[in-house]
């Protein structure tokens, strides 16, 4: 059991990097970006191709991040310069990336079983298995959280937030909202690709279909994190997103342990997200219901 939980936590922490990326677009920019499904695979594809070609895993991972930046920029350009609606711009990038990812790998999947990865490097200093993954993932997540916390406090970061909050106001204050959107989308997809690169190294393979449903997993994690852990400032929010991703993986591990077929997972996740997204609609009814059951509790968070 402890191994199942540890496995879920390590996987959750790796997916948390993608979740942070999804959070950037979905919450900060108010933009549901589907290119995530392609850019997570792109990260995996780049890292797998480079590592099997003999490139240092750390450098390969950094290049995977850069690949994600490019993918996000493409979605941003489609949306802002060509005026393609946000959902469609994301779908176009996602579809295009399917072909691009197979081009990168030269085939539909690559195994990394016999290759050196960032995790075998960690093992070499004595941290093996899930513990090694968890340590590395915590360090990466913390670095990202601090970097984002700093960035969104700067003038430029504030301009991105204002763009997501109120585009009209942002433009009236002289903010180039197109550039801010492209910037946020690039950053988001960069993180998603980084996540994909680390996941591929952890599971020792990259597969062209590993991104399927990534956006829904990301949204589920963001929402779970907000509901369970978000209480205050921006740093708290970033941490809640990471914890949300971990909790999501633990829930999934538990329901599989309880006998759910892995192929039913996507249905399970979709239903979870649908319920979470519908919650605000039913909040008034929910409040009255709770008030009836527990008269002393006045508010449903």
């Amino acid at each position: 059991m402890i191994n199942i939980i540890l496995g879920a936590v390590s996987l959750g922490l790796l997916w948390a990097i993608m979740t942070t990326g999804v959070f950037l677009t979905y919450r900060v920019l108010d933009y549901a970006d589907l290119s995530v499904e392609g850019s997570i695979v792109m990260g995996a594809a780049i890292v797998a191709k480079l590592i099997t070609s003999g490139v240092n895993p750390v450098i390969a991972t950094v290049i995977a991040f850069a690949g994600g930046l490019v993918a996000g920029t493409v979605t941003g350009l489609l949306n802002t310069k060509l005026k393609i609606p946000s959902l469609l711009a994301g779908i176009l990038t996602m579809i295009a990336l399917y072909s691009v990812n197979i081009r990168i790998m030269g085939k539909a999947n690559i195994t990394l079983l016999k290759s050196e990865t960032v995790f075998t490097m960690i093992e070499a200093i004595g941290l093996d298995g899930n513990i090694g993954v968890i340590v590395l993932a915590v360090v990466v997540n913390a670095a990202i959280a601090f970097a984002l916390y700093w960035f969104f406090g700067t003038e430029l970061g504030c301009a991105v937030r204002a763009t997501g909050d109120n585009e009209k106001m942002a433009r009236a204050q002289g903010i180039n909202t197109d550039t801010m959107k492209i910037l946020a989308l690039a950053l988001s997809n960069g993180l998603v690709a980084l996540s994909g690169a680390l996941i591929a190294q952890d599971q020792s393979y990259a597969d062209v279909s590993m991104g399927q449903g990534a956006i829904v997993i990301g949204l589920a994690s963001v929402i779970i994190g907000e509901v369970l852990f978000y209480r205050g400032n921006f740093m708290n929010r970033l941490v809640s997103v990471v914890l949300g991703a971990v909790v999501y993986r633990i829930i999934i591990a538990l329901v599989i342990e309880m006998g759910m077929r892995p192929t039913d997972l996507k249905l399970f996740t979709a239903i979870t997200v649908a319920i979470c997204l519908a919650l605000p609609t039913f909040k008034p009814q929910l409040k009255t219901a709770v008030a009836k059951i527990m008269p002393h509790k006045r508010e449903v968070k």
Binding site: F151, G153, T154, E155, L156, G157, C158, A159, A162, A170, Q173, G174, I175
Partner: peptide
């Protein structure tokens, strides 16, 4: 107000508020 205070200026990586 800090955003408005930077209207017409370059927004860089200095602290926003």
């Amino acid at each position: 107000m800090a955003i408005a205070n930077r209207r017409g200026k370059n927004r860089g990586l200095k602290w926003g508020l």
